[in-house]
Design a protein around this nucleic acid. Structure first.
Lengths: 217, 217
DNA sequence: ATTCGTTTGTGAAAAAGTTGACAATGATTC
DNA sequence: GAATCATTGTCAACTTTTTCACAAACGAAT
């Protein structure tokens, strides 16, 4: 990559999606006390080819040493910076059914730079109760908190029928990236990112292969 | 598609992954009382181009009518059959932390042909307790149940450090498709399918765009 | 019956993404 | 210090995926 380029290239989204996996694997290597890793070794751990990893990283700079590989700490540092994870991001969570509560209690978000700062639900029975020391508030207070805290990330864990409405309100309040657990594709304006968590769809895409195996073993 | 072909074509996995989304959207249309839909209309609901939908479906046959579109019931029936969802699939769930419990309580699996028939954990405090009328059993009973019931699908919701071990045991017991919620890429032999649910990675892939926006607004 | 407005299924073109292959280079060995 | 070994970064080749564009087909309207 041209080290003098000021205008950043448009990085393919597939590449961006792989970076967090690289980062996480590097933290695991770090915890195992491994100081240096080749693209080959890293690739084996995550079932990605060495060439792919090198190509992906080359979008952002030159982080390795020929003959040696990558310094784990340094490469992790670079990817952390690229992903904007030197800071911690405030996140709101909407919907506190069983799933929402599990999300609220999961420590993995906080440990990875994602700080849940607001819990919202529209069930009066839940409003006012606490999860991990954070109060569940009424949906209608959502906009205010998002504005005050400058929140730009949200997690949606409401039923499918409510998801689009919730997404619309989040976006109008200033949220720019949404992780959606509802089983529906929500529409958002340009400049807003959505990713879907869809376990049923993922399982269904696998039953296809199982059914086919059964048909002709 | 050649209607006389006996040997089924190798369908690209990207296509297979989209089918469940089409199917779900068709059930929503059905619930709304809509009888007929064009690739254009279907595409708009899920942010996919009309051409893509037509191309995807053409791998499996001809399901539409020129000038008209697709009959919702019929197309849904076809996709349901293609995905092997005319039957209900037994599934085992391993790991009953907050997340596992939320999964066990989620009705969406059962309502979509995925029947959780076994819950497993290694925490003695949990073993013997019930969730939705299903007992949590000791990990060591896993293999037996999988064999007895012919289970080929599993959901893994254990900590990252335990995931590979659990996956290995599931596979050796006969499981052929795994939905993995643990934040680690698990290795499986050929012929076994794994899909990952990775909310933290998905959020991290979005902080990339947020951070970049911040840098140059 | 003919025309008109739609919409499918598909072959071909275009775009996007992955892999191959190798010069360049850094460390290590002899 | 020359030779050897390992591994990067990258250009080009290749593969996969998406989009285009249009003939064929269907129903409705005249």
């Amino acid at each position: 990559m041209d080290p003098l380029s000021i205008e950043p290239l448009e990085i393919p989204d597939v590449v961006v999606r792989r970076l967090p996996i690289y980062a996480r694997t590097l933290t695991y290597l770090q915890q195992e006390g491994i100081k240096s890793v080749s693209s080959q070794q890293l690739g084996e751990r995550i079932s990605v080819t060495a060439a792919q990893i090198r190509k992906d990283l080359s979008w952002f700079g030159e982080f390795g040493k020929q003959g040696i590989g990558y310094d784990v700490d340094k490469l992790l540092g670079h990817i952390t910076r690229i992903l904007g994870l030197t800071q911690s991001w405030p996140v709101v969570l909407v919907g506190l059914g069983y799933l929402g509560q599990a999300i609220a209690r999961y420590e993995g978000f906080r440990h990875n730079g994602l700080n849940i700062v607001g819990l919202f639900d529209n069930d009066p029975a839940k409003i006012g109760t606490d999860i991990n020391g954070l109060a569940i508030r009424a949906d209608r207070e959502m906009q205010a908190l998002i504005g005050q805290e400058g929140v730009r990330l949200a997690i949606v864990a409401v039923p499918a029928a409510k998801a689009q409405e919730v997404v619309d309100r989040l976006v109008s309040a200033g949220v720019r990236a949404i992780l959606n657990y509802a089983p529906i594709i929500t529409q958002v304006p340009d400049g807003v990112w959505v990713r879907h968590i869809d376990p049923v769809a993922q399982l269904h895409s696998m039953t296809y292969y199982l059914a086919r195996e059964e048909a002709q073993p």
